[in-house]
Amino acid sequence: MIRVRELSKRYGDLLALAGLDFELASGEILGLLGPNGAGKTTTLRLLTGFMPPDGGRVEIDGHDLAQLGPDLRRRSGYLPEATPHYPDLSPEENLEFWGGLYGLAGPARRAAIAKVIEGCGLGAVARRPARELSKGYRQRLGLAQALLHDPELVFLDEPTAGLDPLHVRELRAMIRSFAGNKTVVLCTHILSEVEAVCDRVLILDRGRSALAGSLAELGQRFAGRGRFEARVALPPGGWAGAPGLRAAERLAAGTPERWRLELDPDAEAPAALAAWLHGRGGRIYELRARAAGLEEVFLEVLSGRAEEAP
């Protein structure tokens, strides 16, 4: 549904995006990850049509974004990072205003407002001036505004920033419930949020795509690389002197014990370790490569240690 090709954007001397490529299928939730200044917010602003790229192309359902104009805006909902709203209006009045801008009127508007107020948990504060709302409720109001016209495309910039854990859990559950119905691009710093909510991940670094894929693909792609889980019976003296062993963490006691091991990223390291164990009177029952967590992938990619798989 969304296809991005060679997208670039420059602010004066600063190259914010430098030839970004990615694709996102209809109904998928994409997590945009990256350090500060990686180009996440710029990417969202280009995807929402807020500003044009300096180069490259965005296609929505095969149509050039530049040609879609108001059609795209009618089909998309956007929650900017600052969650802007009119503080003198209540959430209900804010939503009435935005509904009017999206062409909603009469019973249809009332129904849409009631739906998002309930869905975003704004019922208790629907008629209080927005200036009196907590950060969490203002965030919910921003999300309600983005969803009011039931858009197919939803762009969310740091939707859970500053929220308490309870609000975070509820909001993530709501975003996750969009899977299959709405195409979502979620921009965040929080890796666990991406793991909890997204189908796919795009890691940006200095305006470029550093890595992209589904969570499972990335985990597998970075599996091995020295990360293992093992069930072993340790020799007397434990791991002392084990060849190629960088770190060991016991996950479960018993016989055999379960360990998380980090070995040298050398193809021979597992065999050398197994031989060493047998030679010292220990036994190895199972040794398997462990899929990497998103945090490990993220850190590896950004530290430049990751090698792109073919």
Binding site: G49, P70, S76, Y78, P80, P84, Y86, P87, L101, G103
Partner: peptide
């Protein structure tokens, strides 16, 4: 100043 212009400009309002 408040950032609502970004929302207005990404709405269908010309």
């Amino acid at each position: 100043r408040s950032g609502t212009l970004e929302l207005l400009m990404t709405s269908p309002v010309g």
